[in-house]
Simulated assay, not measured.
Amino acid sequence: MNDLERIDDYFSGRLPVEERVRFESSLETDSALAEAVAFYLTARQAAQNEARADRKARFETLRKESGPVRQLPARTWLAIAASAMLVLGLGGYWLFQRQTPSAAALADQYIQQNFSQLSTHMNGQPDSLQTGIARYNEGKLQEAGAIFNALLQRNPADDHAQKLAGLVALRTGQYNQAIDHFHRLGERTDLFANPGRFLEALTRLKRGQPDDRRQAETLFKTVIEQNLEGKAEAEVLIDKL
Rank of each mutant, 00 (worst) to 15 (best):
residue 4 L to G: 07
residue 16 P to F: 03
residue 16 P to I: 10
residue 20 R to F: 04
residue 20 R to M: 08
residue 23 F to Y: 01
residue 26 S to N: 03
residue 26 S to Q: 04
residue 34 A to R: 02
residue 35 E to A: 10
residue 36 A to N: 05
residue 36 A to F: 08
residue 38 A to T: 02
residue 43 A to P: 02
residue 48 Q to C: 05
residue 50 E to I: 02
residue 51 A to H: 07
residue 56 K to C: 02
residue 60 E to Y: 11
residue 60 E to A: 11
residue 65 E to V: 08
residue 68 P to W: 01
residue 70 R to A: 11
residue 72 L to W: 04
residue 74 A to M: 06
residue 75 R to A: 08
residue 78 L to P: 07
residue 86 L to V: 10
residue 88 L to R: 09
residue 103 A to S: 05
residue 110 Y to P: 13
residue 111 I to T: 02
residue 112 Q to D: 11
residue 115 F to W: 09
residue 115 F to K: 04
residue 117 Q to R: 14
residue 119 S to H: 09
residue 123 N to M: 04
residue 124 G to K: 04
residue 124 G to T: 01
residue 126 P to W: 00
residue 129 L to K: 00
residue 130 Q to E: 04
residue 133 I to M: 00
residue 136 Y to T: 00
residue 138 E to Y: 05
residue 139 G to K: 04
residue 144 A to N: 03
residue 147 I to V: 03
residue 150 A to K: 02
residue 151 L to I: 00
residue 152 L to S: 01
residue 160 H to N: 12
residue 163 K to S: 03
residue 167 L to M: 02
residue 175 Y to I: 07
residue 177 Q to C: 02
residue 185 L to S: 07
residue 185 L to R: 05
residue 189 T to V: 14
residue 189 T to I: 09
residue 198 F to K: 13
residue 202 L to M: 05
residue 208 G to K: 08
residue 211 D to A: 11
residue 216 A to K: 13
residue 217 E to C: 06
residue 221 K to R: 15
residue 221 K to Y: 14
residue 223 V to A: 10
residue 238 I to T: 09
residue 240 K to A: 12
